[in-house]
Design a protein around this nucleic acid. Structure first.
Lengths: 357, 357
DNA sequence: TTTAGCACTCCATTAACACGAGTGCCAGCG
DNA sequence: CGCTGGCACTCGTGTTAATGGAGTGCTAAA
């Protein structure tokens, strides 16, 4: 166990102060009320008098780890206080077995990976009683398994492609001239033969390269096919997206009962881009990532915490999932919970048993 | 103009009372405050003294058309009051031209009918500053244009079908044995030849009939094809759904500022089935349909009104769209607005220029 | 260094009060 | 007979003051 922790540049906290900060945070998380010196004296098994506690509290306040709403109230952890708590003081609780079984039965392998994303989100929100969020697997990183063209009217062509996670995507493109069913079939065959198995990102690059370099080596049919692929995998094909559930759970928390705040938060949820950007940041770091209060940098999330973990398919990080709740949440339970859910979702999405087309 | 209106069984309201009720509702809608006799005396151009107004108000209260929050407050319309107002007193305002142009430019014909549904919903919420809702076109009523099978692994087959509004649906089915690509192609060809052009509902019926009656007349390939169709168009294929936007706008209204109510409402939104059922009712009635407050029968909507209109593609009603807001809303503007939006959406979805595959 | 004691601060709750808006009723007027 | 002015009454709102309690900071003693 860590005996001392340095905060800022020079200040040092001894073990006793840390112990007290820990019990303060724990107490505040469970009660939601500013905790006073008397309560803290009882809760901690340090056998100290309230007066001593008060001295320590004054120090912690100087360090910006706790804060007093007003003169005669107890102390409340600040963002830095929470941060120190989750980084070095927290003792994570193992996942309750009933939650674990729920997760297992919910995330057993299914046909439709889209369904699974929804299920994961719902499990996150149901079992934590907060909001659950899961990003759709990042298309860029996902393998192309099969592509198919269907003629609509005139030059409109329906592109259908299946990716890694057995997910089906479709898009309508406009071709430069009218193609027959057979021509489209040929084009699809050609594209499948050269591109399938690669990530969409790689396919996109390959398409560009082929168009630049190999024009002379290709016949007209190949060229048409590659041009169609370019249209189909156009970058802003579809924006990244996520599935958010249990938002209504957030309306129960007193710290979010202010209508202004709540509105701001829900607006952020429906505009999506901000949240997506935030979740993208979490994808870089492996393992559980936490944003506490203002740390996220998004005003709407000022009074919320976000506990996330990336999830992977075939050892490749493809998405993020997490829980959104008030800063005052039971981190010691939520963290392992998010962690496990991410692993189970990744496993469930793994196309282990599916043979290539 | 109507001179008298009977409410309940015997009671009769003269024109003056109606006029007063009308101005009361209008005043209340614009102010949101209980309106007193003095204000009403000024607003109505009847040249009556407040005392007289008070007598009339007492009558209206007896009839259950208005209600006094407490002894010394003005009057507020009840649900029946609103109902009488929208049914017989209301003078609809023509749509503002800037709104009309916004609608036109937003709902110009596009490729993807799903996009269009979203756009419509967003327009409804943006321009009314309330919540907008649009149901996805009912699959049952929509014409099958093309079906296609794609082999996945083992017996898993991806079914893709295109409907009327150029919408693409997909589903994974499990077949009884493994089919080759070519077999699937044949099956699709066969199904397209006999079923395309019919509504999904009709197709489903035909499938059942064919399986019962015509087994002996079909060869094995046909039979397999029809069986696959049965799986593909299985009834609970996918639940009906809707696109709801601008929910956050509802958080601004004082009548919904109660957290309990708001939570209930948002929960209803995310559970969907209740709302879907409500919207289904609206599909039966052609034209604009209104639920005021408790009329909907759903507790969550007790303090809301729902103004809807069905929308049609090729003269067939396929969906509903509408606006959700507090009972105290500007019906005279919202009603024509919803009406026009429904017509424009229907027109935009019409596959007039698209030739069959 | 810790502790007990004490004065102090601040919030929350309650009561009392005045104010204003609006009503209901009644009596008088046209 | 319907309309009106007047008047007493009711009720919600906002202000002020008083009270109690929880918790602090400080100081002096152990």
């Amino acid at each position: 166990m860590v005996a001392e922790v340095s905060v800022g540049n020079t200040q040092v906290l001894n073990e006793r102060s840390l112990q007290l900060l820990k019990t303060l945070v724990e107490r505040y998380i469970s009660d939601g009320q500013p905790v006073g010196s008397r309560a803290l004296a009882k809760d901690s098994d340090l056998n100290l008098s309230p007066a001593t506690i008060r001295n320590v509290m004054a120090d912690l306040e100087d360090l910006g780890l706790v804060h007093s709403p007003h003169t005669s109230a107890g102390r409340v952890p600040t963002v830095s206080g929470y941060r120190l708590f989750v980084d070095t003081l927290l003792t994570v609780k193992p996942l309750e077995s009933k939650d674990l079984t729920r997760l297992h039965q919910g995330l057993s392998v299914s046909d439709d990976s889209n369904d699974m994303i929804g299920v994961a989100s719902r499990l996150l929100s149901e079992l934590t009683q907060m909001a659950g969020v899961v990003t759709l697997p990042k298309r860029e990183l996902v393998c192309l398994r099969h592509i198919e063209f269907l003629p609509l009217s005139h030059t409109r062509v329906l592109v259908i492609f299946v990716t890694n996670e057995q997910e089906v995507h479709n898009k309508i493109i406009h071709t430069s001239k009218v193609f027959s069913s057979a021509e489209l079939q040929q084009a699809a065959n050609y594209l499948n033969s050269i591109y399938s198995g690669r990530s969409l990102n790689a396919v996109r690059k390959a398409v560009l390269k082929d168009l630049q370099d190999d024009q002379e080596r290709m016949n007209q049919g190949m060229l048409d096919a590659v041009k169609m692929a370019q249209l189909a995998f156009d970058r802003d094909n579809k924006k990244d997206d996520y599935v958010l559930t249990g938002e209504t759970n957030l309306m129960g928390f007193s710290e979010l009962s202010d209508m202004e705040r709540l509105k701001g938060l829900f607006e952020a949820f429906s505009q999506k881009q901000g949240v997506i950007h935030l979740l993208d940041q979490c994808m870089k770091a492996e393992g559980v990532q936490i944003f506490i209060g203002e740390e996220s940098g998004y005003r709407a999330f000022d009074h919320c915490s976000l506990v996330t973990s990336s999830y992977s398919v075939s050892d490749e990080v493809v998405g993020v999932l997490g829980v959104i709740g008030p800063t005052r949440m039971a981190y010691e339970k939520i963290i392992p919970f998010v962690d496990v859910t991410a692993k189970l979702l990744g496993a469930a999405l793994n196309p282990k048993s599916t043979t290539p087309l």
